[in-house]
Simulated scan of single mutants.
Amino acid sequence: MDGLTFFGLLAVSLMLLFYALEENSPWFILAFAGSCVLASAYGFLQGAWPFGLVEAIWAVVALARFRRRLADKVQSA
């Protein structure tokens, strides 16, 4: 396994982990967004630009969810 493949495996594995933990804290949503950025970088580096583009969009969606969830948490406190 070369370094780029390992990087992709790590990025997607982190996405899975943080997605599974999202209900525990909004910070896991932020971590999911960060792992989407890593997966996007992997897609572009590997030459699979559609994958990179979709992962970048997922990162933006996750950031919006993080902001909304954090705002909800602050309002309910």
Rank of each mutant, 00 (worst) to 15 (best):
V12K: 11
S13P: 05
L63Q: 05
F6D: 07
G43I: 02
A71I: 10
M1V: 01
A64G: 06
F51G: 01
P26C: 15
E22G: 15
I29K: 09
R65S: 02
Y19W: 06
E23W: 02
L10T: 09
A11L: 12
P50G: 03
G52L: 10
A41Q: 14
R67F: 12
L16K: 11
L10V: 08
V37R: 03
W49K: 05
A62I: 03
L9H: 07
A39S: 14
L63A: 03
W58A: 04
L17A: 09
N24W: 10
M1D: 02
F18G: 02
L21V: 00
V61H: 09
W27D: 14
G52P: 13
L45W: 10
G3I: 11
A77W: 08
R65C: 01
G8H: 07
A56D: 07
W27P: 01
V12G: 00
S76M: 10
R69C: 01
A64R: 09
L10E: 09
Y42M: 02
T5F: 01
A48F: 03
F6C: 04
D2Y: 02
F66L: 05
M1W: 00
A62D: 06
S25I: 12
E55A: 07
A39Y: 04
K73P: 01
N24T: 04
W27T: 04
L45I: 05
E55N: 11
S13N: 14
R65I: 01
V37S: 02
V12S: 14
A39I: 07
V12Q: 12
L16G: 05
V12C: 11
L70P: 06
G43N: 00
S25D: 15
S76L: 09
A33K: 12
L30Q: 13
P50F: 07
P50E: 04
F28C: 02
A64M: 10
E23L: 00
A71V: 10
Y19D: 06
F28I: 00
A62N: 06
Q46I: 07
V74I: 15
R69Y: 00
W49L: 03
E23K: 13
L10I: 04
G34R: 01
A77D: 08
L16A: 13
G52Y: 11
C36D: 13
E22K: 15
R68I: 10
G52M: 09
T5Q: 15
Y42S: 03
V54Q: 05
P26S: 12
D2W: 00
A56C: 11
L63T: 05
I29T: 15
V12R: 13
I29Q: 09
A71Q: 11
E22C: 15
A41R: 15
L21T: 00
G43K: 01
F51D: 00
V37P: 05
N24S: 09
Y19I: 00
V12F: 04
L21K: 06
D72T: 08
I57H: 06
T5D: 14
F66Q: 04
A64D: 08
F32N: 08
